[in-house]
Amino acid sequence: MRNTARRATTLGLTAATVLGPLTGAALAAPDHTPSSLHAPSALVLTVGRGESAATATPLRAVTLTCAPRPFGTHPAPGPACAELRAADGDPDALAAGDAVLCTKEYDPVVVTVDGVWQGRRVSYERTFANDCVRHAHGADVFAF
């Protein structure tokens, strides 16, 4: 009986010695570090037929989230996010494709981009002469 009591006491003291410092860490205040170091990047893109967003006939709207990972209803979120990253989130900085030839017909389409890019507010509107020109600018971003 004495050996059992001695073993139990020894085991209890050993456990307290080993686990004691760990319980202090568990009781410490929780770390409020954000789970993600990415600033939000979520956009809503629309396209409509007309010369301005206020008067255009809506054709389609998609969502595009680029951080923490590309997803959304945009048909190609990965390539579109890569294109926006290369332009630092500025839709005006998207380059026109050199290999694209478009007709000069005037059938205006307007594109809007609203949301947040890496924590900065984005509000963009641009009217293109026709759908071909829209696809030539920001080939992946505006291809929806």
Rank of each mutant, 00 (worst) to 15 (best):
M1I: 02
N3W: 13
R7P: 00
T9K: 12
T10Q: 15
T10C: 15
L13S: 07
L13Q: 01
T14G: 12
L19Q: 04
G20W: 03
L22F: 15
G24P: 00
G24S: 11
A25P: 01
L27G: 07
A28Q: 08
P30C: 04
H32A: 14
S36T: 11
H38C: 09
P40F: 10
S41N: 06
L45Q: 05
L45D: 06
G48D: 00
S52C: 00
S52L: 03
A53R: 09
A53N: 07
T57V: 04
T57C: 00
P58C: 06
R60H: 09
A61Y: 00
A61H: 02
L64G: 06
C66V: 04
C66P: 08
R69D: 11
F71G: 01
A76Y: 04
P77H: 02
G78E: 14
P79G: 03
C81A: 09
E83G: 01
R85L: 13
D90L: 09
D90C: 02
A93W: 15
A96T: 14
D98W: 11
T103K: 07
K104A: 12
K104D: 14
D107H: 05
V109A: 03
G115V: 04
V116Q: 11
W117T: 12
R120Q: 13
Y124A: 00
E125A: 14
R126L: 13
F128C: 04
A129N: 06
D131G: 10
C132R: 06
V133T: 08
V133S: 12
R134A: 04
R134N: 06
H137I: 09
D140V: 01
V141A: 11
